[in-house]
Design a protein around this nucleic acid. Structure first.
Lengths: 190, 190
DNA sequence: TGTACATCAGTGAACGCGCGTTCACTGATGTAC
DNA sequence: TGTACATCAGTGAACGCGCGTTCACTGATGTAC
């Protein structure tokens, strides 16, 4: 039966929230619309009152995940090396590796996103931009040199998390994280 | 009808070759057994004379891709900085980004491999080991320091290729590649 | 070397299954008066 | 404020489709004598 406007908005929010967690945890291809709705105790049919298609959900879920994970990140005291260390330590961490469902969507979806719709790829690109924004806050500077350092740091951080998740060798996973953490937190003369 | 032993072995080799290219290009989930066999002008049924399941094919195809891409890499004159530069320039390149089907399986499959079978994940882990082997040849040393340098070089290289493929922003893709190339080819005092 | 038979690579159709999507229906909510 | 009606969130079954896998069949290859 029909629900109140607030209930409707709330349901939509919850679908998005569950989807963004499931896609990050289990990948886009292996999460179905029924999985998402089932997690909320709802049936599939109702899904299409909120989203035009699974593809539309994917795109919105990536945006939602990105906003969720970047909005709680450092704003004030940007540039302090302790802020940078805190960010690197939390991103390039075992905790992040083991909890993709609450983590960075860029790290969770980076290789499979290439096979998704344009809308999903654009959402992913925005997520990457947001990640780079945050890196820019803790690795400040607008020079060409500074920009390169930011891009490099982002690539290494994402690479470390993704590879640590991918390998079955737990020791190698730890080593990768530690190596990249050290590289990105050690002040370096230029 | 029955084929000669050589023909049989050749067919198996070709299935593996096509599969390893298709998986890298289009991802594991979106390539079917029929796609692979169709590419060879064969029908699905025959597939099971060569492999026990799609999952078995996936694992073997990852190994095949890894061996294919690492066996032509530097062996002699290892450690020379020109060798390192050549390796970095070819891995962290537009050419590699635009031709995943002939490229590194680690970069092609890194995020989706987490959702595959143990056998596939182990093949992926071996592929990562081979990649690290090669990095170890051009970034020599067995010290803790050297090992860390190898690990973050690998993470940054893979991260750059994956993110350059993922983003829809071509300028950002180029910038990522250039930044990581510069970082990894610039000799750095320690 | 020649013959008879067993093997098995590849065919093509069928299987069950899960997927994204659609649809008639329900009943509470929202709206017009 | 109260009433009558339109709307529409959610249900549950059905749809077509593509997937991985199985299977009876074929005929050339391999093997035993």
């Amino acid at each position: 039966m029909r629900r109140s406007r607030e209930d409707t908005a709330e349901t939509r929010r919850r679908i998005l929230d569950v989807a963004s967690r499931l896609f990050r945890a289990r990948g886009i291809a292996s999460v179905g619309v029924a999985d998402v709705m089932g997690e909320l105790g709802l049936t599939v049919g109702g899904f299409y009152r909120h989203f035009a298609s699974k593809d539309a959900l994917v795109a919105e879920a990536i945006d939602a995940a990105s906003i969720e994970t970047t909005s709680r990140k450092p704003r004030a005291e940007a540039g302090a090396s302790s802020t940078r260390r805190a960010l690197v330590d939390s991103y390039v961490s075992r905790l992040h590796v083991e909890n993709p469902e609450r983590g960075c969507p860029v790290a969770a979806l980076c290789s499979e996103i290439a096979h998704e719709t344009p809308a999903a790829r654009e959402a992913f690109s925005r997520a990457l931009e947001r990640l780079l924004d945050i890196v820019g806050r803790v690795e400040p500077g607008r020079s060409k040199r500074a920009r390169e350092r930011q891009l490099y740091a982002a690539a290494a951080a994402v690479g470390a998390v993704v590879l640590a998740r991918a390998t079955t060798d737990r020791a190698l996973a730890s080593d990768l994280l530690r190596a990249v953490r050290r590289e990105l937190t050690t002040a370096r003369p230029r």
